[in-house]
């Protein structure tokens, strides 16, 4: 039986569990947020960060429907910038057809997680995207 302990997030800023969400490193001095680990703050050069949870609902600020990518990447896919509570997130828009009728600027979306595969030890990696809040 697969349990939660057999899962790992695709990236460490995706927090799994009962309520999956994204987590940013926020500069304690100026409030700038980063999803990666920074040595110092790119905004104010501060060196102290705290973890903050990002809201799981937001809207698509911009997108591209990518038809050409490296071998091994399923195309087309919808690459987007999603804004959740004032924080911008890079993510794919998922669970909707990849065309300009279904992926639109301003559309409301929510975080969705899904398995992306198992490694040789049976551990399952969990990825994330954003799916439409309302089905068109």
């Amino acid at each position: 039986m697969v349990t939660m302990s057999n899962q790992v997030p695709l990236v460490d800023y995706l927090v799994l569990g009962d309520t999956p969400h994204l987590e940013a490193n926020e500069c304690t001095a100026c409030g700038a947020r980063f999803f990666d680990h920074r040595s110092a703050c790119a905004s104010c050069s501060g060196v102290s960060f705290k973890k903050v949870s990002i809201p799981t609902e937001g809207f698509v600020r911009t997108f591209s429907l990518v038809s050409m990518a490296a071998p091994g990447i399923d195309v087309p896919f919808a690459a987007a910038v999603v804004e959740c509570g004032g924080t911008s997130i890079r993510a794919n828009v998922v669970n909707t057809p990849v065309d300009p009728e279904h992926v639109t600027i301003g559309m409301k979306v929510r975080l969705a997680t899904f398995p992306i595969g198992k490694d040789s030890e049976g551990t399952e990696a969990i990825g994330f995207g954003f799916e439409p809040l309302e089905v068109k």
Binding site: V11, D36, S64, A80
Partner: peptide, 29 residues
Amino acid sequence: TWVPSGRYGAVTSVDGRIGTETMPGVFAQ
């Protein structure tokens, strides 16, 4: 094996899984 690495702690390639690294896609956005 899924081992987190890099500043995002990614266990594998994220291009195409978390947005795009291609220039046509970046500049389209």
